[in-house]
């Protein structure tokens, strides 16, 4: 486990057979997002046997648009190596930003193995047509 120097954002790694879990703590934003990309790329390069990369987001406090960009970059890198990218314990703000930006389908979620939490939400919301007839 290596702590990165930033006091605002740290990535700690935990490894097992065929998997790596990166635990993200703090603010994933303009100043820190490159650290996540760099750490993920480093793990991918070191572990040719990798099948699953988990991002543990339970301790994440903030994720801005650069943070989303970093998640997309990690997704692009893992996809290129046929590694499955999982986002775990996403806090509500992360869920929300992933839902609004329409990227949640890219990340394998725990919810998919567990009883689906937000399933059907999208379909329901799409049905309310607010406009009165012209």
């Amino acid at each position: 486990m290596t702590a990165l120097p930033s006091p605002f954002f740290t990535v700690t790694a935990e490894e097992g057979r065929g998997w790596v879990r990166l635990r993200l703590t703090g603010d994933l934003d303009y100043d820190t997002s490159h650290e996540l990309v760099a750490r993920a790329a480093e793990r991918l390069a070191d572990r040719p046997d990798l099948r699953d990369l988990y991002l543990d987001c339970a301790q994440l406090r903030l994720c801005d648009s650069m943070g989303v960009s970093a998640l997309l970059q990690v997704h692009r890198d893992t996809t290129a190596r046929s590694v499955c990218l999982h986002v775990e314990d996403a806090p509500p703000f992360l869920d929300r930003i992933m839902r609004i930006t329409g990227i949640q389908h890219l990340f394998a979620r725990q919810e998919e193995q567990r009883p689906a939490r937000g399933a059907g939400e999208e379909a329901a919301s799409a049905e309310q047509r607010p406009s009165p007839a012209p």
């Binding site: 997309l72 329409g102 919301s125 799409a126 607010p130």
Partner: peptide, 23 residues
Amino acid sequence: EIPTHGSLVGALEQITAHTVGTT
């Protein structure tokens, strides 16, 4: 809230978008 939704542009190969009308 107008329930339109779609994916961000510029980073994904495939994107989707859903248009909603109102008056």
